[in-house]
Design a binder for these strands. Sequence first.
DNA 1: ATGAAAGCGCTAACAT
DNA 2: ATGTTAGCGCTTTCAT
Lengths: 344, 344
Amino acid sequence: MSGPSTPARPTMSDVAAAAGVSLKTVSRVVNAEGYVSTDTVAAVKAAIEQLGFRRNDAARQLRQGTAATIGLIFEDQSDPFYSTLARAVEDVALAHGSLLLIASSNGDPAHSQTIVDAFTSRGVDGLIVAPAAGTEPGLLQREAAAGRAIVFVDRPVPGVDADTVLADNVGGAAAATAHLVANGHRRIAFFGDDPGVFTATERLAGYSRALREAGLEPDDRLVRLAAPTADGLDDVIGGVLDQTDPPTALITGNNRWSIRMLRHLKAHASRAPLAFVGFDDFELADVLDPAVTVVAQAPAEMGRIAAELLFRRVGGAEEPIECIRIPPRLIVRGSGELPGPALA
Amino acid sequence: MSGPSTPARPTMSDVAAAAGVSLKTVSRVVNAEGYVSTDTVAAVKAAIEQLGFRRNDAARQLRQGTAATIGLIFEDQSDPFYSTLARAVEDVALAHGSLLLIASSNGDPAHSQTIVDAFTSRGVDGLIVAPAAGTEPGLLQREAAAGRAIVFVDRPVPGVDADTVLADNVGGAAAATAHLVANGHRRIAFFGDDPGVFTATERLAGYSRALREAGLEPDDRLVRLAAPTADGLDDVIGGVLDQTDPPTALITGNNRWSIRMLRHLKAHASRAPLAFVGFDDFELADVLDPAVTVVAQAPAEMGRIAAELLFRRVGGAEEPIECIRIPPRLIVRGSGELPGPALA
DNA sequence: ATGAAAGCGCTAACAT
DNA sequence: ATGTTAGCGCTTTCAT
């Protein structure tokens, strides 16, 4: 007699009793298996409606072994790059009748592992993971080997046999760099994420390659790799931009860095303007003055492709592992076209 | 003999057999129930490790009736307002050992209903919902009455007995309007979401109230309500801003509208500058020139509070239904302080 | 401290 | 077209 008595949820037996049929017939109707007479279907549906029956998917999952659910793991689900990607995954999942579990790893491999465990305990049919830097292959490879569908996005985990969808980071960063060179710049700075982060390293490599291809000497004094959320970045940036023989252009290695940089540049507006190309597009890049030239990734496309790969595997496809590179696209908006000394 | 033979996932019986104990003892160890000798614990843990056992939560859920999962339903999980809110919910859920199912309603009440069904079939312990405009109370009230924990955020559903976390939309919009009046503006335009959207109507009411309190006559020619994603908004906006006796200031009713407006203003820069206050903060508002004055909501706080309310209910709390209003905060950045005619 | 048996609500397999 | 039976892997209950 304590609390408001919550009416117990009706089960298929309750519906069966109400409709005067057997349990299995209710199951047939609920799952639209067919081979049930029109009258019976109507009677069962009426009983379902009247009792407010909803199938208990835990029981279904226990029996069938499928959760109709996939798990997403990102560093931070509120990062616009990942939330856009997640949305695209959701649309594909919906078409496959699947739901989405989402969790943020905070870039912590240990926590990431906890999430993988929690997801697999729940029997997710597959995982789409942007792995945290430093993720060991062990657990994931075990899952992959046990037949769990896994697709990596944005970053791979070497040692895990799983499909992977990556941006062409080297090519994109090289294109950004070449673009600045073509606009007359010779001293181009690069600000990227922590060197442990796969994309940061690849993008730095693309930058260096393009410099060399342009006959320019990479200069350590123009490169800084640090988490864009770190403290003291104003000093880090200032140390590069205010040195003797300073850069006349710069590249930021991801959207967090672009935004951090724009904030810095606004706070230090007395400095001579620098040409600026960001890796990854971001909202309002086109509205700023000058509008920000970017190498746009295609997060929605990456999400869609990753999800399609995943559901192919969930469906039992045995094709060889794929690694798909999505080419980024240079979007010229103004900030990257300020002429450098060689054109001045 | 088709495909790579996927090793069957080990169960508790397998672990029990390997460790030479009974099924129940394994269960005790896995769930840290205690009353197991140190040696036995060690033996069981070794077997778990060796076999790579993970508890099957579908079976657990079937028996216990709890999924350790909550469901989130938003219009669009990639909207920064909602993705920030979702992230805050996630942090609270994590502390309660719960995972997050997320789905986007696209503002469609029918699809929203499908999602609620899918979530409840899966036995979620609770729902956090930003309901689509036009949501009927029926299904949700049935769930609430059946004891499912529900918390509404951003918008209520009248007729459903559930806790609700809302912004003080009227107060916030009134503050934005009063701020512009105090800066000398007399003709202030308002661009908000569709009139079916709860927040749009409340914010419009706050705007009108503040005008009247300032002794100003609300003027229909200065107000437009439309989805910020609609086509042809440039004409809608132009129709207001380019009329005879045009406004000298404007308010946008949500972050999507703010961004839409900034894009329009940039494309029509020849027009005399208008004072501008946005409802809801957005990234880079501080970096634009002029920086955009906003009435900032607190999506993370709203998410945290909603989640805390939810888990209180999941835990069985029987307190009366609460409706919490979170006061927004005016952040003065420049765009809202351009002096109007009364101060010129 | 440990174990045996029953059963959660559903679907698979097999009748009829 | 419909029904019966067994059992998915776990937790609950009750012994010992």
